[in-house]
Amino acid sequence: MTAQVIELRGRGLGGGAVEGEALVTREAISGWGGIDPATGSVIESRHELCGVSFKDRILVFPGAKGSSGWSGMFHLARLAGTAPRAMVFNHLNTKIALGIVVTHVPAVTDLDQDPLTVIETGDHVLVDADTGLVRVTRRAALAPAGR
């Protein structure tokens, strides 16, 4: 079986490189009133990830929305040990920019392909904020069917 590896390139933010398992959502995430920093879970009742935790995962999402408490909540998540390991996203605003700064995680945006389409939850992802590289290894290649 051919390992399916896809590389995306964009603008690296924050610096550093990490690897981990992707958690992908097509819906923007609220910080304050949208996540619980104690568990790293999304709590917005109408969100498709409601109840799902991003702790130690590579969060792939459109961007940040909602209250100005976005950075504050992700800052608390870092202190509580529930922050995502990296962020890959499409839309830059002040909420996510400050959130990346205080969460101390690598991030990449402005990618040459839409990460929400290319990356699937469970894929293994390398995020290198120093070079802007996002390397995706398909879950299918990692765990063949029938295993």
Partner: peptide
């Protein structure tokens, strides 16, 4: 103004 956060 932009929508600033606590730290900024």
């Amino acid at each position: 103004t932009n929508c600033e956060g606590r730290e900024s």
